[in-house]
Structures are given as C-alpha cells and as structure tokens.
Amino acid sequence: MKRRAFIKKTGWLAAAGAMPLSSWTAPDTIKLTILHTNDVHSRIEPFPMDGGRFQGLGGASRRAALIETIRATEEHVLLVDAGDIFQGTPYFNFFGGELEFKLMSRMGYDAATIGNHDFDAGIDGLAKQLPNANFPFIISNYDFKNTILEGRTMANKVVKKGKLRIGMIGLGIELEGLVPKTLYKETRYLNPVELANHHAAKLKQEEKCDLVICLSHLGYKYRSDTISDVSLAAQSRHIDLIIGGHTHTLLKQPERVLNLDGEPVLINQVGWGGMHLGCIELLFERNRRGRCVNCKNLAVGA
C-alpha cells in the first residue's frame, strides 16, 4: 500500500528537515487544523505567580487569543476538548462550571467529551450547566438512560469543515471506583473498544467521513491492562486520531500506533490546566486520505 510505504520511508513525523522544497508541485488539497485541550480543570486564569512550577502559564484569555491567531490564517479549524473541564480552582467551587462552559462557547469549541471530574458537582450539576455550552458533548460509551443527561449528549457526530466530513466519537473512563456513585447515579459505563469501533465504522462507512476523531478520557497509557488510548488504538478500526486526556500527559508530538488493519492511529494529549494547545494540521488530497503534516503542541503563555 502506497501510504504505508510512505510512512515507513519517512517515519511519519520523525524525519524533520530532509525534504528539498523544490520537489513540491501543485495538487488539489484541503487543509484541516485541529486544535485541542484536555484536563483544563477550571484553570481560567494563568497559574498564579507564586513561585510554583507552572506560574504564569496558561489562561483562557491567552488561549482564546492563540486560537484567534490561528483562525485568522487557517480556513478549516476544528476545536475540541477531551474532558475534565471542571474542578481545580475556586471558579468551579463557586460557580459550578458556568464560566468554563461560557468561555469554551465564546472560543468556538466544536465539541467536548466528558471526563470523570465533570461529574464532581453530580450529574445534576453537569446537566444544570449544559445550557451554557453551545457545543455538543460527545460520549459513546456512557449509557445515561434514566438519568437527567438522557438524550442530552451524542454518541457520535459529523461536523463539516468545507468539503471535509469529520466524524467524532467520545469515550469516558470507568466511573466505578473513581467517582462516587452518588454523583454519577444510574450512568452505565459500556465497553469503550466495542462502542468506539461500532461508531467509527458507522462514521467511516455510512456517513462517509474523511476522518474519524475519538475524543477520549481513558488516559494515555498504563502499565496495567487497563484500557488506554494506546491499547484502544491497537484494538481499533476506522479511528484516525485519538485526542486524549485524564493522565495529564504532555506529548511533544503525537504518538503513532497501528490499528487492527495495520493503519496508523495518531494519539495526542497536551498535559493539563490549559498550559498547552494541541495543534494538528492534516492535509487532504483529492482522494481524501488524511496526512499529518505538521503536528505540534503549543505552549500558552510565558
């Protein structure tokens, strides 16, 4: 297969600086810029200037400015979050996540998934804040039947950016043992691999998506056999990109794992607290296969 040979030859992102620019000639292409956050944990202001390790980093205002800068030059921008929007500063204790959702709405987030800490004010607390979010919550493996969130989230979603059809799914972590049942109530955790493959196949085959993105709060990688983004990727089909969270892992560039079909799946995660903005640029040619052109995780602030 041409694409795999290409990847093998170049090592995807690994090889930098090898290509003479003169060899590039004109094709018919569309570029998609995917921007993402995870585990922002109510970090609305930059980390305080108190001598701590992260002082001065992050902050919603500067993240918004950075996103605007990118939007000014890029036509097709997808902005997503991989969960744990809530909990970590008094903004959450005092206002219950209201401001977090309002800010993300203002920044133009296209979608988010649900992290374990998004249940910290209870499933009712999360439901109460939903009207402040103008973007959908995508979660494929939580069954909210008989809860206040029933029918208020999506198991998958197609977003159009120009001529591109982008399919999105969302995966949440096992709640039992992590979140008190009094908070998540009747929410049922379903097998993430099965649900991911089911919805990804649907998006690729029935919805004819050019790209399938999984917003995941499973965590990047574990020493145990707990399901993670890395193990999910290896057991997956039809997922091109996993935007991860939960383990607060800051990757310099996306990890690449081969799926059941031997196709590469990119996994990215950008730490926590809104200190970085993930930035993945994909170029689609006419046959519409994504290529990671320029994947980088940007620092927000100082």
């Binding site: 090898a18 590039w24 292409t29 170029l283 290529r291």
Partner: peptide, 8 residues
C-alpha cells in the same frame, strides 16, 4: 505541494 512527499 505534492501530498505524497509532504510529511517529511
């Protein structure tokens, strides 16, 4: 640019 060569 030519897509086949772009990633490096």
């Amino acid at each position: 640019c030519k897509v086949n060569h772009l990633a490096d």
